[in-house]
Design a protein around this nucleic acid. Structure first.
Length: 90
DNA sequence: CTGTTGACTCCGG
DNA sequence: ACCGGAGCCAACA
């Protein structure tokens, strides 16, 4: 996740595949309770269908969206605009 | 050690 | 578009 550049996002699916596993859930699960909270941009990780997904920070999903927007990503209805273009490929 | 639970995804109805 | 079930793995009680 640390390689995700500002203004881009990735999906739980990709991360799982990159890890050579199908534990998509575990990825999000670990992210949620990740001890690297400040050093890892978990808010740049979204669902594979382009939805923002969830967030456990203060403000919840709303906060996540504002963070993404602040980094140049447009979100509408919990969906990433131009998802395919903002998507970061490993 | 044995359940649950959950920032997920895929497939069928 | 919406719902249910299966698959997978880590954290937690």
């Amino acid at each position: 996740m640390k390689q995700i550049p500002k203004g881009k996002v990735t999906t739980y699916k990709m991360i799982a595949e990159r890890l050579d596993t199908k534990a998509y859930r575990a990825v999000g699960s670990v992210c949620k309770r990740n001890p690297y909270a400040p050093v890892v941009p978990c808010h740049r990780v979204v669902k594979s269908n382009g939805e923002v997904g969830n967030y456990s920070g203060s403000g919840g999903v709303k906060k996540k969206i504002s963070l993404l927007k602040k980094e140049g990503i447009t979100v509408r209805n919990n969906k990433i605009v131009d998802f395919d273009k903002k998507l970061f490929e490993f």
